[in-house]
């Protein structure tokens, strides 16, 4: 599965568009991780546990998007974007979406 944030894949030709695919995940902060983060939040600095949480959420969203694209028999997703929203205090949504396409090697 090739995933890009641009409209085309250089060296490849888009054979067929399979439509929009998306994956979303809502992650809540861990209360026990939050304790250390709360301390860090008063003195400043990076919240490593949250960075980890965010990268996990992003991975999960992309994974779900890829699963959907596989069902459509696509072999690439182009124009991928991320959108986020904070639903309630202490939880964040990461939403990944893109266009599933079937590509083949361009001749010549």
């Amino acid at each position: 599965m090739i995933i890009t944030t641009i409209e085309t894949i250089p060296g490849m030709r888009v054979k067929e568009h399979c439509g929009i695919v998306s994956g979303s995940t809502v992650r809540a902060k861990n209360m026990f991780l939050d304790f250390g983060a709360g301390l860090k939040n008063t003195i400043g600095g990076e919240l490593k546990s949250y960075t980890h949480l965010l990268s996990e959420a992003r991975e999960e969203a992309v994974k779900r998007m890829i699963e959907q694209a596989r069902k459509l028999r696509a072999n690439a997703i182009v124009n991928v974007r991320f959108a986020t929203s904070s639903i309630t205090a202490g939880a964040a949504e990461v939403y990944a979406y893109g266009t599933a396409v079937e590509v083949e090697k361009a001749e010549g």
Binding site: T8, K40, N41, T42, L47, K48, V62
Partner: peptide, 29 residues
Amino acid sequence: GAKRWTTERKIKDIKMVTGEAVIAGDYFK
């Protein structure tokens, strides 16, 4: 912002990369 990016050169590998960071301010701020 190069949505329609193309190249003449042969491509070996193309993939999406990401980076995350969560930074907190301090109470004084």
